[in-house]
Computed example of a mutant assay.
Amino acid sequence: MKYLLITFFALSISFAQSPKKILKKLGEDPVFFIDSINVEKGDLQRYDPNQISSVTVYKDKEAIALLGEDGKDGVIYIETKVFCKKRYWKYFVSKSSEYNQFVSSYENDMNVQYVLNERVLKEGFEGDLAAIDDVVFKSIKLISKEELIKKYQIEDKDYGFQIISETPKDLYHGNRKF
């Protein structure tokens, strides 16, 4: 129950509403997905809230369009940091042979500094990078250790990648993180 409340607190931050208001709007039996897998409400307790990267809430017509009548009480879609990391790793590998060369698997980016549109990403950025797709993606470029130090004053990473992207159009409607 503790993790469920923390998850709903995260939802309230996403929508600038209290958890009670969100629950009231959702109905009594929303459908939950974690990393694209349908789970029961009780399964949420197994997840550490620090591993949650993004939460998307679908309600009313949007939820019914996704799941039919099963979505009538709403749909809550949760993605973990690892799930998001796998998604952006696959995407960037498909866009850059340099990225594939330097980051051979999603687990191998501990010494990588990501810079998104000149914003140095420090913590909790997995959802931001996972939100990048062909609609908003512009480019990805390797940043050398020397450039990381000179331009960004970052000395604890071996290299970096600068990602240039537009901001998703539905960012402020609660459907995308960035």
Rank of each mutant, 00 (worst) to 15 (best):
L116F: 06
V112E: 03
L116V: 06
S94D: 10
F125M: 08
L44P: 05
E98M: 10
V82H: 00
I149Y: 09
E107R: 15
R119Q: 14
V39H: 04
S14V: 10
E126V: 00
L11A: 15
E28Y: 07
S96K: 02
V103C: 02
V82N: 09
D73M: 07
I132L: 04
K20Q: 14
S12P: 07
L67Q: 06
K72S: 07
I164F: 06
V31K: 06
F161P: 07
K157R: 08
N117R: 05
D48G: 00
Y58Q: 08
T56M: 10
I140W: 01
F92G: 00
V136K: 02
F33W: 00
M110Q: 15
L44S: 00
Y114K: 05
F83K: 09
K95R: 07
Y88M: 03
T167G: 03
E98P: 05
F125L: 05
K2V: 12
V55T: 09
I164L: 11
K122H: 12
G68T: 06
P168R: 05
G127S: 14
Q51R: 15
R46D: 11
D134T: 06
Y3G: 14
S144M: 01
K86S: 02
K150S: 10
I154Y: 04
E123C: 09
V135M: 13
T56S: 09
G27H: 04
I22C: 05
E40Q: 13
S144A: 01
I76N: 07
T80V: 00
E155I: 10
P168K: 03
I64C: 04
L121A: 02
D134H: 10
K41M: 12
G174F: 02
